[in-house]
Design a protein around this nucleic acid. Sequence first.
DNA 1: TACCTTTATTATGTCATACATAATACAAAT
DNA 2: ATTTGTATTATGTATGACATAATAAAGGTA
Lengths: 232, 232
Amino acid sequence: MEDIFQNIRIDTSSLVDKVESNLIELFVEKNFKVGDAIPKELELAQMLGVSRTVVREAMLRLRLMGLIESKKHRGAVITSPDLVSILEKSMNPKILDENTLKEIFEMRLSLEIGMADFIMARVTPEDIAALKELVASEPGASGQVIFQIEHEIAFHGKLYEITRNETMKKFQRMLLPVFDYVHKSGLLRKHTATKDFVSHQGLVEIIEHGTPEQLRNGMRNHLENHFARLFE
Amino acid sequence: MEDIFQNIRIDTSSLVDKVESNLIELFVEKNFKVGDAIPKELELAQMLGVSRTVVREAMLRLRLMGLIESKKHRGAVITSPDLVSILEKSMNPKILDENTLKEIFEMRLSLEIGMADFIMARVTPEDIAALKELVASEPGASGQVIFQIEHEIAFHGKLYEITRNETMKKFQRMLLPVFDYVHKSGLLRKHTATKDFVSHQGLVEIIEHGTPEQLRNGMRNHLENHFARLFE
DNA sequence: TACCTTTATTATGTCATACATAATACAAAT
DNA sequence: ATTTGTATTATGTATGACATAATAAAGGTA
């Protein structure tokens, strides 16, 4: 009965809102596929009976959503949006508050432990060779911190790659600047004393000869430093 | 030495790009806080020496990034963006291709297995009581599928909540429509025969009396159906 | 022929201006 | 005091113009 107020609610959406959905409809309807060029702004404006201003703004939204990609002065094409490229634009560590950064970090840890099954199911001999290569060229404990971090990133990046899951891989790449920031900002205190946790070398051995369960546990131990800091 | 090519690379960013970062700088510099109103478009245009068109487009980006929120005809205010609300806008399952959906699904599985440590570290007696409550009210195997799925969501949602990680929790909430779509679209085939995997009941017992490692393994088993379908 | 340079074309990027519209504040009226 | 009208203001939308950069076409040189 109180719905009477809902029923008389008028359409508050702006013209751009409508054009935005109209454009999506149009693309779906005309069965545009990835890579197809879309009509130029002026044509779209005429087709929809609005000004180029509105079309431009609607298209900008689609671009930020990752639905289209436009090249300067040469038109736009349909693209397949993925979660992560959308996020990328907003991943400016300066505008995320500290707690969010910490939570993202926790998410990363969870992901790396939980992806063991995908690694074990999809790893190839070539991957293992590549991992061994990486481990062999690792700088020792006496090496410069910068290179250690670089290797850390390379090794874990390779693990993401082995999952053959592009979304996760991109997720990781996207987070790199965040972790960089986390490290530099001292958001997480310095390493606690390094005990004999599972090394990269150890992880590779598990991947070659072990089980998903072992890899999960190994990874958990490998990340012990981070957990210790989070839980301290 | 090959850097010579990098050095002569000219600035390819558009005016809007620059204005976008200038605006962010401006807000940081002037120490604008959440809720503060920002100058009107015309003022910003004059301050930055560009047209209102450009300012509008840059502000639209900030809006889609979740940095500001603008009310019609009444100006814009600073807001605090979080990762997930940004994604939400683009999480239209219709515009994500099947493979991306599958990858997101895999990400979810990884996350739920990997978050065991956070659950065990932060679970409270109240949480356990709530979980038991949920399990007790579960519909039997003969119940309607809809209610089973609802309970599945409620139970796993509670687990995310126990991590006390808002980002993960929101991530999960955000993904619900996707999974809904995944189920309905038949992207994943129907359940394989249900063996004696770890039940919700079993998970609760582990959470109450077990270790993170046991929880990871229990969760892995609980999700066996999904893994089986992914790896088949 | 093959390759380089110039020119022409074209769609987007940017600007300036004008007007419509909706949100608010304030005055006026009951 | 509550309602209603009115003015103000910032944004929403439209229009037309020009600048610029990406390509294609044309032309010239070896």
